[in-house]
Each structure stands twice: as C-alpha cells, then as structure tokens.
Amino acid sequence: MPSTGLRERKKNTRYKSIVHKAEKLFLDKGLDHVQMQDVADAEGIGIATLFRYFPKKDKLIVAVAVANLEKNIGAFRELAGSDHSAYERLENVLDYLTKDDHVQPNNGVKFREAFESYASFAKSPLQDIQDYIDTQKEISKIFMRIIDDGRVDGSIRTDIPVKETLITIINAYGTFGNNIALKSPISYLEDDVTPRKQQRILKEMLLSYIRS
C-alpha cells in the first residue's frame, strides 16, 4: 500500500498536470468557452476525479493564475538578490518583465491579461482570489529588497516616496509591455514606432526619474 508521502506526491503531480492542461485549454479556447469536462478529457481522468481537485471552474482558473505568477518568483529573487546596485537591479527587472515579448507575447502574458479581464467582470470575487493576491504580495516583498538596498548604496533617489515609486514603475512598465506585445499584430500609425522602441523610451523615462 503506498505511503502517505507517496500519495501526496502523486496528488501534487496530478494537481500540477491538471493546471498545466487547463492553462493550455484556456489559452486555446478562452476562459469562458472551456468546460470542466474538456479539462478532464485533456488530463485523461473522469469528471468526478477532477472535481475532487477543483469543485468549481473558478477555483481552477485561479489556480492556473497563481501558477502563472509563481513561475517568475525564482527569477525575481535572483534579480533582486544580485550584487549589482539597486538601480541596476531595477533596470534588470524591467528588462525581464518584457523579455522577448516584443517578438511574440508569451503564454504567461496572454493568460494574465485574460484572467485579469475575466476577474474584473465577475459578478462577485472569484473563489480563492486571495491566493492570487497573496502571490502578488510575495512578489512585491521581493522587490522591497531593491528599495532597502537603494537607500544604502545611494543609487536611487531618497527625496521621493521610494516604495510607491518603485511599485508604480514596475506595474506601469509591465502593463505597458504586456499591452503592446499583445497588440503587436495591429498596425501602428508609424511603421518605425515599433513596440521595442516604445519600451526602450518608457524604460529610460522611468529610470531617469529615480536615478540618484
């Protein structure tokens, strides 16, 4: 008979596999058009088994959103904990937020955009949405290290509300990068005003404001 630890590991593997299959279906068909039976079929399990993991579709959607965010936590920790100055670390974070998205928006960008739109139009808060919020807070705490170190190494201005400014910069740059990446197939007014150039200009504007 399998041990409790083995059963838990198998359960965790199944959980991750369901979330992975669900994300692919959501990206292919859209959040509103995927049925729980579709997910069960993709995973090769019965619908009753799926409901033991996720009793409601919204719980599955939030689980995918949380997993989507968590994929970046390791990279954020590495960037925030590097030996570079706080200013250089912030610049590296901004580069990471839009890495390669000017060529082809990745699935993480696409899903986050779809999820946040879905959540904003929900008639009531999605079940387990606090898990998503808590994951965002965890990421924010990682960035707080850059703030603290910036006060010490003098690479970031101290005459501005540093915490609020840093969070605003990261949110604004990430949102802008995601937006233009998703709209890249649409023609722009000027052929030479590429998404990549817009990103570079915005990054320079934001960084120049906080540079000591």
Rank of each mutant, 00 (worst) to 15 (best):
K56C: 09
D32Y: 14
T13Q: 08
Y209P: 05
L60Q: 11
Y188W: 04
V93G: 00
I156K: 02
I169Y: 01
I133Y: 05
A40S: 11
K137T: 12
G44E: 01
Q127W: 10
N171C: 01
E113D: 15
P55M: 11
K141G: 07
F54Q: 10
T98R: 03
L50R: 14
N68C: 15
F111T: 13
T158L: 10
K110D: 08
E70W: 15
G44W: 15
E43K: 08
K24P: 03
I142E: 00
D153H: 05
R112E: 06
A119N: 11
Y53K: 01
I139E: 00
T13G: 08
F111P: 09
A172N: 11
V193E: 15
E204Q: 15
R211W: 02
K10M: 06
V66H: 09
N12Y: 03
K163F: 07
A86V: 07
K163L: 05
S85Y: 09
P55Q: 14
L27Q: 08
R112H: 03
S124D: 07
I167G: 01
V193F: 14
V103C: 06
L97H: 01
K71A: 09
E204R: 15
D149A: 02
D41G: 05
R77F: 08
T98E: 00
S17F: 15
E164N: 10
I186G: 04
N171I: 01
D41I: 00
I169W: 00
P185D: 09
D41V: 01
A75F: 15
K59M: 04
I61R: 11
Q199E: 09
I147M: 10
A172R: 04
K163E: 09
D128I: 04
E23A: 09
S124L: 13
A42K: 13
T4H: 09
F143Y: 02
K141V: 01
K24H: 03
K137N: 11
D149Y: 03
D41E: 09
P125I: 08
T175L: 00
I186N: 12
I170G: 02
V62G: 12
V152R: 12
N179T: 09
M1K: 12
F176T: 09
A40R: 07
S3Y: 04
T175V: 01
H20R: 12
A75H: 11
K59T: 00
V93E: 00
I47F: 13
Q136R: 06
K110W: 01
Q37Y: 02
K183Q: 08
T194V: 06
G108Y: 00
L207F: 10
R157E: 06
I180N: 07
T98H: 08
T175E: 00
